[in-house]
Amino acid sequence: MIFRPPRIAGWRRRLAPILGLLSAPLAVTAQTAPPLLRDSVVARLAELRRIHTPDGIELLEPVAIDGTTQWVSVRGKHRENPVIVMIHGGPGSPTMPMAWAYQSPWEDFFTVVHYDQRGVGKNAATADTAALTPTLTFNQLVRDAELMVGWVRAKLGVQRVVVMGYSYGTMIGMALAQRRPEWLHAYVGVGQVSGSGDAYLYQRLRMLAQAAGQRDAMRELDSIAPYPRPGAPVSTVLLTRKWARYFNGGWYGKPTFDLLFALPAWAPEYTAADVARQTAATQWTTRTLVGRDGATLPDSLAVPVVVMQGKHDLHTPYEPARAYVERLRAPHKAFITLEWSAHVPMLEEPGQFLQQLLTVVQPLTVRR
């Protein structure tokens, strides 16, 4: 029997590309810091992160993927370690320029790959957005991910990798796991999209606002009722995410993503010009993807599934994510709760996050 995953119906399909909007850092402008100060800080961070082991790998290079150039970072201290391929969210918000803030300890145990999806991040410098716009679909992003993992397998000489999807990237990662299960040790979801998060989010925000006596929140939330609804503008999604952050649902203990958005300014992988271009690239991606068909969530996967979810996450809400994973069929499943995290657990609880990678994910990479 051929399995056909359900489509995200109606408004949910249209909003799916922005469920994780702003989940990874948008760029700040090049004026965030004077150029000489930025150059000095970035040079020191680059040296601090330098891979010195004789069997390590540290690559940053452009790769030709289905008619586009997509920049890739590959970092790890030992080439025999298992490989994690990170698929970023947003859509159009790369994790590559924020990885400097949390990833170095991972590199003792894994080779970690980040790539900027078509037209965004470091790719924006040479991207012809007019030509790329017709190609920017969910299915094309899945195809790009497949080709990128194929490149990684050939470049590093490995048969299988761990695919880690983040926020909107969880949908891409799951679709890839359906398409190429033989290439994966496991699928790992971080900030897992559930397909039913927005309705839950709206009611949860109203409860939190009432309990806190937050009149501005109640007034703004009432102004977009009923939510979610077909044809609602993107501004309604942004408004709910603003209040999600206020109520600890973005980065626990921080009412905004200001710090998250600032991280790319110090990324050794990015030039100041790369940073300056990223905001427009993310906006282009979001405008283009909203309303385009193709995003699906599966009922089953043929690979082990591990979901690492912040308990306070309201960008991709925790409770619907947990319920979705409970329904999902897979040969092995683990749902890991990060107790004091929201939507960026690798930054909020980096030690706990790494511990789970080592105790839950790493054993899945050992062939039995």
Score class of each variant (00 low, 15 high):
175 A>C: 09
161 V>C: 06
151 W>K: 01
185 H>K: 12
183 W>V: 06
177 A>M: 09
151 W>I: 02
162 V>R: 13
154 A>M: 11
172 I>Q: 07
156 L>T: 03
159 Q>E: 12
168 Y>L: 10
151 W>Y: 15
166 Y>T: 11
159 Q>Y: 00
151 W>Q: 09
168 Y>M: 09
181 P>I: 12
160 R>K: 15
160 R>L: 06
154 A>L: 12
165 G>Y: 01
154 A>D: 15
180 R>Y: 00
158 V>P: 08
186 A>F: 06
171 M>G: 11
155 K>I: 04
156 L>V: 06
160 R>T: 07
172 I>P: 01
176 L>E: 08
166 Y>F: 14
156 L>Y: 05
155 K>F: 10
174 M>T: 12
152 V>Y: 06
151 W>G: 00
169 G>R: 07
159 Q>D: 09
185 H>W: 14
179 R>M: 09
181 P>F: 11
155 K>H: 15
186 A>Y: 06
180 R>F: 00
157 G>K: 02
170 T>M: 02
183 W>D: 13
154 A>C: 10
164 M>A: 12
187 Y>W: 14
177 A>E: 01
185 H>P: 03
164 M>V: 13
153 R>Y: 00
173 G>D: 04
176 L>F: 14
168 Y>N: 13
183 W>N: 07
172 I>M: 03
187 Y>L: 10
184 L>C: 03
171 M>I: 07
151 W>E: 05
171 M>T: 11
177 A>I: 01
183 W>K: 03
179 R>D: 06
185 H>L: 09
186 A>L: 07
185 H>V: 09
171 M>K: 10
157 G>C: 09
181 P>A: 15
174 M>Y: 02
169 G>V: 05
153 R>A: 00
176 L>H: 13
167 S>K: 09
160 R>N: 12
179 R>L: 12
161 V>F: 05
158 V>G: 13
154 A>E: 14
170 T>P: 03
163 V>T: 08
184 L>R: 01
172 I>F: 03
178 Q>Y: 00
152 V>C: 04
153 R>C: 09
171 M>E: 03
185 H>M: 11
186 A>E: 06
161 V>D: 04
176 L>V: 12
184 L>D: 01
167 S>Q: 05
181 P>L: 14
153 R>L: 01
164 M>F: 08
183 W>R: 14
183 W>E: 11
156 L>N: 10
179 R>T: 04
163 V>N: 04
159 Q>R: 13
160 R>Q: 15
179 R>V: 06
152 V>G: 03
173 G>Q: 07
184 L>A: 04
170 T>V: 02
153 R>Q: 14
168 Y>C: 08
182 E>M: 14
180 R>I: 07
187 Y>K: 10
177 A>T: 03
154 A>N: 14
170 T>H: 03
173 G>R: 02
185 H>Q: 11
174 M>P: 04
184 L>E: 01
179 R>P: 00
187 Y>E: 04
158 V>M: 13
157 G>E: 08
177 A>K: 07
170 T>F: 02
153 R>N: 02
156 L>S: 11
